[in-house]
Design a protein around this nucleic acid. Structure first.
Length: 443
DNA sequence: TCTGGGGTCCTAGGACCC
DNA sequence: TCTGGGGTCCTAGGACCC
């Protein structure tokens, strides 16, 4: 359906109707990374801002003004050079320390309003609004949205509906139409129908590029078209995952709130700032990736049993010889020890490294993660685990006090040829002072 | 010249076993 | 020539998410 056919363009679902069984809320931050950069630099309000991925590769966040210029999500930065210059777009390298801290502030504020929440990503949380039947959800939602904005400086939007997938749909409307004041509620079948008819099938949560193409081929263009197909057809075409989306869009909740689980796999990987050809250079990078995985494991108090190393050349450089390889090792004893994971990772790298290629990226993945080490280890394990455990504790606490990477293992090196580019990094406004205070306190 | 990083879940097919 | 059937486990690959 065309937007123009709507009489009320600013809030196409019309006035609020009588309430059905509302349960789920989805609150997410508007243009999160760009908004974070703005919080500490108000001069950026009203002007186009974009944030680039690691290595200053491609666009991963855009302010409304940048979107209006037609800058697409995921576009490589080098292709946007002219557009950026001619429109004076402010460009930032991604600053995950800043975004992580701002995210925490937002989530903490939401938690003051809703006890049952699921932090779904760095900038989104699902809320369970069961038991809120007797309050005006529109008023409640607007208060929450306003408070988050006031307390953190980050603008947010809230969608409320009977299922998670519909809450996602509602959220898009809350973002798109000013009259909703940041909160859109789908609480009747009429609104659901209207919303789904205005929603492109590819914009539905759970429908990616691939399925969108298939569905368009079958003349399914809107979320509403999709819901009008039979369950059997959807099951056949898209499996159980598609069937769930179909049910959710029809108002039957099949995705519940999830409790945070410890991760099943942990990956640390990067593209290199410059192409690497020498095993020694890549070893340094891989040692750092392994160290990164070890730290993440220790943070969540767990141990890995399997380690994978991979390396590859630049797949976009089609005129150059390509190489991709990976190897996976079972570890003799579950571990989160930096030195041990590094030694496995380097052994793996040596096994898969081939000379004569220009390498672009490498990574380390730890999987089969367990919460604790089994009491009965490997009988032939000769490592003094007690000692290394203490060493790791000391390393973590020193790095916590004096800053990341101050203490590390020799093979992590100082050369850092593999280091990524981030030429337009903003200062860590939100954590700089805190870090200084923490160092001071421990001094 | 220059194209991110970190996850999850599901399915199909092969190996293997009884 | 004829050549079971069912279960489990593992893995690779494909799809999705932010």
């Amino acid at each position: 359906m065309d937007m123009e056919t709507n009489t009320n363009f600013d809030s196409p679902l019309g006035a609020r109707g009588s309430r059905g069984s509302l349960i789920y809320g989805l609150l997410d931050c508007n243009n999160f990374y760009a908004s974070c950069e703005r919080v500490f630099n108000p001069a950026l309000n009203g002007v186009p801002v974009v944030v680039l991925s690691n290595n200053d590769g491609c666009v991963i966040a855009r302010s409304a003004e940048a979107k209006a210029l037609g800058i697409p999500m995921g576009e490589p930065a080098f292709r946007l050079k002219d557009l950026i210059e001619s429109n004076q777009v402010t460009v930032f390298s991604s600053n995950y320390t800043l975004y992580g801290d701002m995210s925490h502030r937002v989530m903490t504020t939401i938690a003051e309003f809703v006890s049952d929440m699921e932090v779904y990503s760095i900038d989104e949380a699902f809320l369970l609004l069961d038991g809120y039947e007797n309050i005006d959800l529109k008023v409640f939602g607007e208060k929450m949205v306003g408070t988050v904005h006031r307390n953190t400086g980050i603008p947010v939007s809230l969608g409320i509906a009977p299922t998670k997938t519909l809450a996602k749909v509602a959220n898009k409307f809350a973002k798109k139409y000013k009259d909703y004041k940041g909160v859109c509620i789908i609480d009747t079948d009429e609104k659901r129908e209207k919303a789904l008819k205005l929603t492109e099938i590819g914009d539905v949560w759970g429908i990616g590029r691939r399925y969108a193409k298939t569905l368009h081929y079958h003349s399914v263009n809107t979320a509403w078209d999709f819901t009008q197909r039979t369950k059997g057809w959807v099951r056949q075409t898209m499996g159980v995952v598609g069937e769930r989306t179909w049910l959710e869009l029809r108002g039957t909740a099949c995705l519940e709130m999830e409790t945070p689980k410890s991760k099943k796999s942990i990956c640390t990987s990067r593209s290199f700032g410059e192409k690497l050809t020498e095993l020694s250079q890549i070893s340094e990078a891989v040692a750092n990736f392994a160290a990164g995985c070890a730290e993440k494991l220790r943070t969540q108090n767990s141990y890995g049993c399997v380690l994978t190393v991979f390396i590859h050349t630049n797949p976009f450089a089609t005129n150059q010889p390509q190489y991709y390889n990976q190897t996976t090792m079972q570890l003799s004893v579950p571990t989160n020890d930096t030195t041990e994971l590094i030694s496995y990772a380097l052994r793996g790298l040596t096994a898969i490294f081939a000379t004569g290629y220009k390498y672009k990226k490498a990574g380390v993945i730890v999987s089969e993660i367990v919460p604790a080490r089994p009491l009965q280890g490997d009988l032939f394990d000769t490592r003094n685990r007690e000692k290394f455990n203490k060493l790791m504790c000391v390393m973590d606490s020193m790095n916590a006090s004096y800053g990341k990477q101050k203490v590390k293992v020799a093979s992590q090196g100082f050369d850092r040829k593999w280091k990524l580019k981030n030429e337009k990094l903003s200062p860590c406004y939100s954590t700089k002072l805190k870090d200084a205070l923490e160092v001071g306190a421990k001094d």
